[in-house]
């Protein structure tokens, strides 16, 4: 039986080399991780709701917060309406991605919507859900639902209902613009109010199948964060 000959490298040198390699390895993996993290986080500019006075909802007095958003069919239309934005893709988009809302408040959101539309895959999303009285104001008129083929996008907030945070579900169908109105840079103004619970993390997205996709009219824009989806943080204080 032959035995291996001794190594020419001393034990101390080996240990240093191994520890250096381990540190390097952890550093490489962490760098990859934090790069991905920061690449993702870049597109998550926060938009804070402004609190202005109080509101009475069902007998309770709550802080009243206001926040606004716009929806454009592409960045060119946005620039035509004095919203400066350059996107990687010629896709429709919401201007604000990460909304920060106060907890236990009445939030009134104003949406200016500039895009055209088609028919929803799921008609349920044509209903106004989760707002005060389950209604919204479209150009000043109170409505509780739209026709499923008159929708341009939806603004839908989801959370994980089994989480320990309060549940928050809001669905707002946004009325579409006709082609003629779009030519003239026309828009609808949609206003709705909903009540937030305690602090928590939620997501919002559009449930209208937009972007000329290859299946179920669901384009690439629906599969990526940043255009038709974002986050909602409800925070204390």
């Amino acid at each position: 039986m032959e035995t291996p000959t001794q190594s020419e490298v001393s034990g101390g040198k080996r240990l240093v080399s191994a520890i250096a390699f381990l540190v390097l390895g952890v550093a490489v993996v962490s760098t990859v991780g934090f790069t991905l993290h920061s690449v993702s986080a870049d597109s998550q500019k926060k938009s804070y709701a402004t609190v202005n006075g109080t509101a009475d909802v069902n007998g309770a007095t709550l802080k009243h917060a206001f926040v606004s958003e716009s929806v454009f069919p592409d960045d060119a239309t946005a620039r035509a309406n004095h919203v400066n934005r350059t996107n990687t893709h010629p896709w429709p988009f919401y201007t604000e991605e990460h909304l920060v809302l106060p907890a236990h408040s009445l939030v009134t959101m104003t949406l200016k919507v500039y895009d055209g539309g088609e028919k929803l895959n799921t008609n349920y999303f044509a209903k106004v859900l989760g707002t005060v009285d389950n209604t919204m104001l479209v150009d000043g008129q109170q409505v509780s639902s739209l026709a499923p083929d008159a929708v341009q996008h939806t603004f839908t907030i989801h959370g994980l209902p089994t989480s320990t945070q309060d549940s928050l579900f809001v669905n707002i169908p946004l009325p579409k613009m006709s082609d003629a109105e779009m030519e003239k840079n026309g828009f609808h103004t949609v206003v709705f109010s909903f009540v937030t619970g305690g602090a928590g993390e939620y997501v919002w997205n559009c449930e209208y199948p937009c972007g000329d996709g290859t299946y179920a009219k669901f384009g690439a824009v629906m599969g990526q964060n940043g255009y038709m989806s974002g986050k909602v943080s409800v925070v204390n204080g």
């Binding site: 799921t122 349920y124 999303f125 579900f169 997205n205 449930e207 199948p209 179920a216």
Partner: peptide
């Protein structure tokens, strides 16, 4: 039960209601 990206909706035909 209808699944759509990304919500479940439930239709109770005998009761005539639709919910999530």
């Amino acid at each position: 039960v209808t699944g759509s990206q990304w919500l479940w909706t439930f239709n109770y035909p005998a009761q005539g209601i639709e919910t999530h």
